[in-house]
Design a protein around this nucleic acid. Structure first.
Length: 235
DNA sequence: GCGACAG
DNA sequence: ATCTTGTCGC
């Protein structure tokens, strides 16, 4: 009842397993990065998903993944799914996906509103091997996905002007891997990059349209709140 | 060898 | 990521 064509729950490509060594994980990223599509347009989304994970330890322990669905243009929360479970991959810069994705996929399996756009708390292709968590998840879901990170993982940039809407390019060895976008006046900018199946221009446009007076876009704010509601019992 | 390093 | 009240500034 979880694989018939009338299933009302979300399904996605199970591209591989997650029990890998760090060396195998990096090798996998290099191969999967070739499948990321940096082009695509989202005309008028009906549902937008936000994804975030709260993990208590730098190494192992219990964590909570949250996937929320907001309707557009109202940006009202219409569905929230969370999964609490053990996280057995340590935090290693560049391999965040292997720590958070397993729980995120479990939460996504319970989602009943198929999103037209997905925003992930983390990098898209603005990653050493061009496969941050947003790009990686974008390949699994095969839905337009945007990476929305609060800080830089790699690349160089010039600080964007202080007014909301301004942005500068994030460059890595001459390659444009994303933008540094000011989503709120006089507040630290966000690092936006393509996750999959969307152009950087559309990514910037939709991130701005999801902001409602706060630095973080609404989908990420709701997801963060949903995952954080469990932090008191996260130990 | 040294510094950097999403969450 | 997480521990956490008041406080400075637009």
């Amino acid at each position: 009842m979880t694989s018939n064509r009338y299933n009302r729950f979300m399904h996605f490509n199970r591209l591989h397993d997650w029990n890998l060594t760090t060396a195998q994980a990096r090798d996998l990223q290099n191969r999967l990065a070739l499948d990321v599509c940096r082009l695509g347009n989202v005309a008028e989304p009906r549902f937008i998903a936000g994804i975030d994970v709260s993990s208590p330890l730098r190494a192992r322990g219990m964590g909570t993944a949250a996937v929320v669905i907001l309707e557009y243009p109202g940006l009202e929360l219409v569905e929230t799914q969370t999964v609490r479970g053990n996280i057995d991959f340590p935090y290693v810069p560049g391999l965040l996906t292997f720590r958070e994705a397993p729980l995120i996929l479990q939460a996504f399996e319970k989602i009943t509103h198929t999103p037209d756009l997905i925003i992930v708390d983390g990098q898209g292709i603005a990653h050493p091997r061009r496969l941050g968590i947003a790009a990686h998840l974008g390949l699994f879901f095969d839905i337009p996905t945007i990476g929305c990170a609060k800080s830089r993982l790699c690349g160089t940039y010039i600080e964007p002007a202080s007014e909301a809407g301004n942005f500068t390019e994030l460059l890595d060895n001459g390659e444009s891997i994303g933008v540094v976008l000011r989503t709120k006046n006089n507040v630290k900018p966000l690092f936006i990059s393509v996750g999959n199946k969307i152009s950087i221009d559309d990514a910037i446009f939709w991130i701005m349209r999801c902001c409602r007076g706060y630095r973080l876009p609404e989908p990420i704010r709701f997801a963060h709140q949903a995952a954080g509601n469990f932090k008191s019992e996260n130990n």
